[in-house]
């Protein structure tokens, strides 16, 4: 169990919860934890940077488990196990990091690891202006491009539209993406069609986090233990990326 050291609102429905834990502080970009709120459930969360010697989760209030995590207070104890999963393959040259919603978490960690703002472009996609998160922190890590579906901030349009324009400039050696699956599928397809190396960090329902239960499968891959980060080519080969997910009973459904 770890102690919550601080809670900060990012948007009306998104909060960052900081806690002390050296193991999680050392998590690599793209890695996740299984987070237990006693009495409230357990869910996978990308590990965000926190205070020195600590880490954080940035959670959107959604169903029961995420609402329980969203509701914790400073001083509360929560269970964390992990970090689990792999990380990104950081290439040389100019990098496009595209994040949608809380999918910004692994992109922020990745930008911190690259630690060279001159070769990083961070594309932040949101539905509308108040949902843009981490804008100030991102500005210190690279050039920030914002897109909103309704045009209330930055470019009007989806993150896929913005990524298409950026990738069209031909200056990128690699692209990394995390966000809603249709957004990831769109950007992965754009990058692949231009021959740009691309990786995405995938979300699937998880129970164990370590490759035992099978609930996170995508094609023949297990997102928790083979991923969460996969190359675009591998994603395309699954035949399920962007198209099919499994519900809690394991029935394959179309997005």
């Amino acid at each position: 169990m770890v102690r919550v050291t601080g809670v900060a609102d990012e948007t009306p429905t998104v909060r960052t919860i900081r806690f002390e834990d050296p193991g999680m502080a050392a998590a690599l970009p793209g890695q996740f934890a299984m987070v237990w709120v006693p009495g409230g459930g357990e869910l996978p969360m990308s590990v965000m940077a926190g205070d020195p010697g600590g880490a954080a989760f940035t959670v959107r209030r959604h169903g029961p488990a995420s609402t329980a995590l969203y509701g914790v207070d400073r001083g509360d104890l929560i269970g964390v196990r992990g970090p689990y999963g792999n990380t990104f393959d950081v290439r040389e040259g100019r990098l496009l990091l595209a994040g949608g919603g809380t999918g910004m978490v692994p992109m922020m960690r990745l930008a911190m690891r690259v630690a060279d703002p001159s070769r990083v472009v961070i594309l932040m996609g949101a539905r509308t202006a108040p949902e843009v998160i981490f804008e100030r922190a991102a500005a210190a890590l690279g050039e920030v491009v914002i897109s909103t579906d309704d045009g209330s901030r930055g470019e009007e349009g989806t993150a896929v539209d913005a990524a298409r324009r950026l990738l069209g400039s031909g200056r990128f050696s690699a692209a990394y993406v995390c966000g809603p699956e249709p957004m990831m599928a769109g950007i992965v397809a754009e990058a692949r069609s231009r021959g740009v190396f691309v990786q995405a960090s995938i979300e699937r329902p998880m129970k164990c986090g370590v490759g035992i239960c099978g609930s996170c499968c995508m094609g023949d891959r297990l997102v928790c233990s083979d991923g969460t980060v996969f190359d675009g080519d591998r994603l395309a080969a699954t035949g399920e990326f962007g198209a099919i997910y499994r519900d809690k009973a394991g029935i394959a459904r179309r997005y």
Binding site: M34, G41, P64, A65, R81, K248
Partner: peptide
């Protein structure tokens, strides 16, 4: 079909797993 129980459904215990 069965949805199963809500998480936590698995936890480490005594060098093995509880599910």
């Amino acid at each position: 079909p069965r949805e199963g129980y809500p998480n936590p459904t698995m936890a480490e215990a005594a060098g093995g797993w509880l599910n």
